[in-house]
Design a protein around this nucleic acid. Structure first.
Length: 404
RNA sequence: GGCGGGUUGGCGGAGAGGUUACGCAGCGGAUUGCAAAUCCGUGAAGACCGGUUCGAUUCCGGUACCCGCCUCCA
């Protein structure tokens, strides 16, 4: 499999930031790409085979635009090059629109140099203060849509299997990609299948930069939400359904993962994932259904199959296990004034005292001690193996020291 | 206004024209000094109105509401 994911590094927002800060565009985009990679790694997302940047493929874009102009599918006007929508009969097929209907309902002023209001920009002029590349139509920069068509052709050929993207990009972006590619290289099919994911919501509205109602993966990680928990929440809804990120989902996901990680600890994964899980994933990537199947394996106590099946979804992997190891009771190590101490060593004296009180059936004192310790973020409990302590999220070693 | 998608039990969330989704919460029980955790069991649904069908939450039509898109923003 070849997986290509491109970075758009020709963008007016980036240009504006460069102008504002005096930093080089490449420096800015290197930095943001680094952030992106770090976040995706934290979620356990695999890196694509290739990650082309638009600025590395300007030549291919200029060549494709030239081809479109030569074939009459595009025209130059006032330093711009525009795609002639009327020259591609199937325009609108993906999004189910017709050019005439859209023009009828158009609410926006149309640039005077356009032959048709729906024509879109392939190339636009750059002034001396903006990044630009030489082209047959003067110094300028590409419109957004052409980069995808040009890079897809260079890296994947005229026909490839799946084109992904958010459903909000169906029109005009993906429609325009199809028009460009189909006209420049009619011998190919461009994308055989379109895989559109629904939107991530915040209180019922699309999360987007322009609405300002967004938070990032990094924000969640910084709040202490493990990447694996974020991953689980994202996989718990089918990709074609919109999803609201909520604190309740976070808590449920964490509880499930804690339970499952406890279940598979020290268990070797089965040789292959459970058929029910593969079947769900094979049916239009039904991750929610696959997770339901994982619950079935957990309920049946089949830890080996649970582990193998979860791992195929990037869950319960060693790579994402650190949060669990760090916060799972006894193996947790933390820093105090007297250096690094294991959770069990610190809690041991209190646990002993509580056990003594219980043995003597002094339940009033035992309960009082338990309550105080719980205020420090440690829950005492009786397990089949004897008394034990669980670290809570609110654990604060400093509060433990004052307890008598 | 146009196009696309949605509306499932208290909450989250799938599939399938007829037989338990699943998870969380709830309820009952086991266990526990009490709890927690765990285990067993269990009630609860498919916006509204029509149609097709032996049978529809699932197919078709309409209504209401919600979301997305309709821009030289990517």
């Amino acid at each position: 499999m070849t997986y290509v994911r491109n970075f758009t590094d020709v963008d007016d927002k980036i240009n504006a930031k460069a102008a504002e800060t005096g930093r080089a565009i490449r420096e800015i985009t290197d930095e943001t790409i680094g952030w992106y990679h770090a976040d995706m790694d934290a979620l356990g997302a695999l890196r694509p085979t290739q990650e082309p940047r638009a600025t590395d493929w300007i030549g291919a874009m200029v060549a494709m635009i030239g081809r479109l102009v030569a074939q009459g599918h595009a025209y130059a006007a006032e330093g711009h090059v525009l795609f002639r929508v009327r020259s591609y009969a199937a325009y609108g097929a993906l999004s189910g629109r017709s050019v005439d209907d859209m023009i009828a309902g158009a609410r926006v002023e149309v640039a005077p140099f356009k032959e048709d209001p729906m024509d879109f920009v392939l190339w636009k002029p750059s002034g001396p203060d903006l990044p630009g590349w030489d082209s047959p139509w003067g110094r300028g920069r590409p419109g957004w849509h052409i980069e995808c068509s040009a890079m897809a052709r260079e890296l994947l050929g005229d026909t490839f299997d799946i084109h992904g993207g958010g459903i909000d990009l169906t029109f005009p972006h993906h429609e325009n990609e199809i028009a460009q590619s189909a006209c420049a290289h009619p011998e190919g099919l461009f994308a055989r299948t379109w895989l559109h994911n629904e939107m991530l919501l915040v209180k019922g509205k699309k999360m987007s930069k322009s609405l300002g109602n967004f938070f990032t993966v990094r924000d969640l990680l910084d709040q202490g939400v493990p990447g694996e928990v974020i991953r689980f929440v994202l996989l718990s809804t089918h990709y074609r359904s919109p999803m609201d990120w909520t604190e309740k989902k976070r808590a449920e996901a964490e509880a499930v993962l804690r339970k499952w990680r406890g279940l598979v600890a020290g268990i070797e994964p089965a040789p292959s994932p459970a058929p029910a899980v593969l079947e769900a994933l094979g049916d239009d990537l039904n991750t929610a259904g696959a997770i339901a199947a994982l619950h079935g394996l957990a309920a049946a106590g089949d830890a080996a199959a649970l582990r193998a099946s979860a791992e195929v979804m990037g869950l319960l992997t060693d790579d994402l296990s650190e949060w669990f190891a760090l916060t799972n009771g006894k193996t947790w190590t933390f820093e105090t004034d007297s250096g690094f101490v294991g959770f069990d060593r610190l809690i041991d004296p209190y646990l002993r005292r509580w056990s003594d009180l219980r043995r003597r059936k002094d339940f009033v004192a035992a309960d009082a001690l338990k309550a105080m310790i719980e205020r420090a973020g440690v829950r005492l409990m009786v397990t089949p193996d004897g008394p034990d302590a669980e670290r809570l999220a609110s654990f604060d070693p400093a509060k433990l020291e004052g307890i008598e």
